[in-house]
């Protein structure tokens, strides 16, 4: 008697995930302009909302920037956001490829195995995915990643100089990929500047659980943290807690200053357009994939944005700038665990 409804619950939950595929359709595509000169058409699949102030927004902003630069008649894009269910994303990727887009971007490392299956079926379509360096040896797959440890390191240097308690808290999603690189870089930056500082790291196991991210931040503060950072879209909960307690915050992936202008010190901001432009040029010259790209401080794909409303001490800013120069010139190397 007892087992039956539970089983049914699981069954229905499974169905729910399946139905989600049907529900979360794609955004309406802008009809291709029927001109003699065909525009370059890009489709992108993203795990969270385009306005998440984090990972997905960084890609959306990049595409908007490229469109502005190249003109709407030369560059068009469509997107499916909120595709956190990988099977749905795979269906969308295949759809876009079928519709003949010039470049289909799978913006999320979780989409890798889907792409590996789909890409060989569309040899004339170029695919890109990130964040990774893995192209699967396929001639029509580009890989891209962010050297997020670089901005993490710079943030870490500033965090170490600004902490008074000597305790710094980090709220991360899942210990992998872009998030792990950022956190590793951040910890390295702190340790290089203030070896006796304590950095407490908390992985909450989710990219979307805003309330758990907030509770993790409260835990850090209870453990004595007076400076925090975190990565991925659920950190908005942690930023709220930091604001409430007057704890300093370092952002990454997008400029998070608007959420808490009082306490956000600086942000690592991604400009994917740097590598996307390289890919588009290659595709137009006939190379559909097989290479991997990285945005970093040196190529301008990673930019440190200071919050103008935050009164950053001159020596801290000078140290940050010196660190940025050092990383650009390769004088500072950041160990990745």
């Amino acid at each position: 008697m007892f087992r039956n409804p539970l089983f049914r619950l699981l069954l229905v939950f499974g169905l729910a995930l399946g139905l989600l595929a049907a529900c979360k359709g794609q955004q309406p595509a802008t009809p291709a302009a029927e001109e003699a000169k065909k525009p370059f058409r890009v489709a992108v699949v993203m795990p969270s909302a385009i306005n998440d102030l984090a990972f997905s927004q960084s890609m959306y902003d990049a595409l908007v920037a490229i469109q502005k630069e190249r003109g709407e008649e030369n560059f068009q894009f469509v997107y499916s956001d909120g595709m956190y269910v990988v099977d749905d994303a795979a269906a969308a990727i295949r759809d876009y490829a079928t519709q003949g887009y010039d470049l289909v971007i799978a913006h999320g490392s979780q989409y890798g195995s889907s792409l590996q299956e789909i890409a060989p079926d569309f040899p004339n379509t170029s695919f890109a995915w990130g964040t990774t360096v893995e192209t699967f040896g396929l001639p029509n797959v580009f890989a891209y990643e962010a050297a997020s440890e670089q901005g993490g390191y710079v943030n870490g240097v500033m965090a170490a100089m600004l902490t008074k308690s000597g305790v710094i808290g980090v709220v991360g999603p899942i210990e992998t990929g872009d998030a792990k690189r950022y956190v590793d870089g951040f910890v390295a930056g702190v340790k290089a500047t203030k070896p006796d500082a304590t950095v407490n790291v908390n992985w909450i196991g989710s990219f979307s659980d805003v309330s758990l991210a907030a509770e993790a931040a409260k835990t850090h503060i209870a453990a004595g943290a007076d400076v925090m950072t975190g990565t991925a879209q659920m950190v908005v909960g942690a930023i709220g807690v930091a604001k409430e307690h007057g704890v300093l915050w370092f952002g990454t992936q997008a400029d998070q200053t608007s959420l808490a202008p009082e306490i956000v010190v600086a942000n690592q901001v991604y400009h994917w357009e740097v590598v996307l432009n390289q890919m588009i040029d290659l595709i137009q010259q006939g190379t559909l994939g097989g290479r991997s790209f990285a945005i970093d401080l040196a190529n301008g794909g990673i930019v440190m944005v200071y919050n103008p409303q935050f009164d950053l001490p001159d020596d801290v800013k000078a140290a940050a700038e010196k660190t940025i120069e050092g990383i650009k010139k390769g004088e500072i190397t950041i160990p990745l665990k």
Binding site: D52, Y84, S206, S211, L212, G237, E244
Partner: peptide, 27 residues
Amino acid sequence: ALSVGLLGVFQQNMTSGLGFIAVALVY
């Protein structure tokens, strides 16, 4: 209780499966 109680923020899919755990808690 989440958006204006504990957090003061709204984010897409912010409940993150909490509602399904609530159903399981009834069992």
